[in-house]
Design a binder for these strands. Structure first.
Length: 193
DNA sequence: CGCAGGATTTGCT
DNA sequence: GCAAATCCTGCGG
């Protein structure tokens, strides 16, 4: 339970609840601190990334491309800037509310597929940045034991250190996105579990 | 004060 | 498969 990598794996199968919707986490990405060029904390603490340097078990929410929200779980002890991006999940409660937020024509397995879609299904926004995972607003219920089958592969959407296999997902789970490859098609996926 | 870029998603060709 | 939408953050001057 020391590395962000381990923390990321441990979050698979966890259930995150907010505002009437619960999502079982099926896909995550690990982000290191200062040593990880792809992390928001790569160049030291900034107003935005400061929350990552604080105590763990809080939410780190940020706005991407001016329109999408992404949610992270801050891990590691105080002073450590590690975080785990929540990329996809399965809606296990409040599915009707999630469907309203995402659109009635969205298939169930896609309700929380993709980091921005997951936050939208949960109703998370910038206002929840720094929210404690122990509640009352946001509740994270960690799984009793480690996930049975976990696959790993390179991170998606990052232009730095994309070769580091710090993306984890539950093998074979239908809510996990087989996301598009990087611009360079033909790159070996290496993502098999 | 101004500029460049981003942990994405969606829709059209 | 490609390109646009859209705004906040971080850095340089």
């Amino acid at each position: 339970m020391d590395t962000v990598e381990t923390e990321a794996r441990a979050l698979l199968g966890a259930t995150l609840t907010h505002d009437g919707v619960s999502v079982r986490i099926t896909e995550v990405e690990a982000y290191g601190g200062v040593g990880d060029p792809a992390s928001h904390a790569a160049r030291g603490p900034t107003p935005r990334s400061a929350i990552m340097f604080g105590p763990p078990d809080v939410l780190y929410v940020y706005l991407s491309y001016g329109m999408h929200h992404c949610a992270n779980v801050v891990v590691g002890k105080d002073g450590d800037a590690s975080a785990v991006l929540l990329r996809a999940g399965e809606v296990v409660a409040g599915i009707e509310l999630a469907r309203i937020r995402r659109g009635t024509d969205v298939p169930d397995v896609r309700l929380a597929r993709g980091p921005a879609n997951l936050t939208r299904a949960l109703g998370l926004a910038l206002a929840h940045n720094g929210a404690a995972l122990a509640g009352p607003e946001v509740v994270l219920r960690r799984p009793a034991g480690p996930a049975a089958a976990v696959s790993c592969g390179p991170r998606v959407g990052v232009s730095q250190a994309a070769d580091v296999p710090w993306r984890f997902w539950l093998t074979g789970d239908p809510t996990v996105s087989a996301y598009r490859r990087s611009p360079r098609a033909g790159t070996p996926d290496a993502a098999r579990g």
